[in-house]
Design a protein around this nucleic acid. Sequence first.
RNA 1: GGAGGGUUAGCAUAAUUGGUAAUGCACCGGUCUUGAAAACCGGCGGCUUCGGCCUUGAGGGUUCGAGUCCCUCACCCUCCGCCA
Length: 424
Amino acid sequence: MFDIRLIRSNPELVRAAMEKRNAPVDLDTILAVDARRRSAVYEMEQLRARQNKASETIAQRKKNNENADDVIAEMKQIKEESANLDLIAKQAEEDLEEILLSLPNLPDESVPAGKNEADNQEIRRWGEIPSFNFEVRDHVDIAEKLGIVDFSRGAKISGARFTLSLGYGARLERALINFMLDIHTQKHGYQEALPPFLVNTASVQGTGQLPKFSADLFKIDNTDYWLIPTAEVPVTNIHRDEILSLEDLPKYYVAHTPCFRSEAGSYGKDTRGMIRVHQFNKVELVKFTTPESSWEELEKLTANAEYILQQLGLAYRVVCLCGGDLGFSAAKTYDLEVWVPAQNTYREISSCSNFTDFQARRANIRFKRDKKPEFVHTLNGSGLAVGRTVVAILENYQQEDGSVIIPEALRPYMGGLSVIPAQT
RNA sequence: GGAGGGUUAGCAUAAUUGGUAAUGCACCGGUCUUGAAAACCGGCGGCUUCGGCCUUGAGGGUUCGAGUCCCUCACCCUCCGCCA
């Protein structure tokens, strides 16, 4: 949520920031709505003040057993006047709120300018891209041959963009989930959370998916429940409408949940395989921090996600999203992109963002260190997207005979298995 | 699903027939003190055009006036029923 006072006091800064995002806004209209709202509210308050005075008089007279009919008559008249004013003021407030809720976060100064994905800035690379002396297969071929993912039955049970993992495929997902959770809880100091997968409208608005992006979400009919598109939603909302104490910060949570996405508008994109599906597993990292420490915490969070890829021996690069590619709520985002051999390119496997006080303002998450409560900063990042990690492992560790080597760090979680054997 | 009880500031607790939210703890500032504690004084939810306005789970209604009465909804607790 945007702070209207920032727009009032520094419209040029806001204008420049939104241009960087490639999402120019009509600040004059906003300021006009704000002015309208302020004068309407002021007018209404003046009338209220009269009302309160008269009301006091009535109470006083009644106490003294005096007649108050004249004042009551006056009050009735004021009431009629105020009904209309009240409506105007409320409408103006709603108008402004609607606009403010639809404004994206301000990008940080360090975010590179740019229109889209092509303008993102590569920060660093890690690991060696594997070379194969045979024709590489994509994860769909590999998985089907191994009998560990059944795409057609996934489609039969539910529809397109749903997968059914079986045997070692299901085991591999479970192993990855446990592996990631163990590292983040034991090595990186995150508290494990297992949140609800259905959340109410207030929660989805708190993290910024609503009201603008309802089309990306699944909604349960006849209820106020939405399927979570990421654990970010329930976990960030753990502290909605709360005031934390300074000693509570920073707070680290890690959660594994399935994620549900409608993928509206992605027709024709990644239609094959498990890169883009309606339901996938993800281990998510969420942080609540003080404003002054959030940038440092973003670097640490990103490093925590990278550590998983390093342990798995998967080559990746870190990319800083440019203004035009930045998500609605984020002030800055690093994407981790893992090497996908069959596509001969890097693909997103984690997205680590600092939301500054944007979500905290919407969800009313504060902390107290002096007199006044202040908004916390929230951050989150995938640590990692499990389905895409499976894709990366299958493709990067494939062997000519169709078998797939299990990365060493993962073997304890696979009952000691070192290779998913080829089917004969 | 049924019956009953509840939701007031960071926390905890008040508020005759409807008369305009009181108090304690915690916290912050001050006085006092070598320093601290205690005591005392002030502050202690949001907004403000500094006149004020708003705030008792949410939204409506009745009324000149609602924490209080009525309706709808959410959540919590207890019991009954059903259930993995």
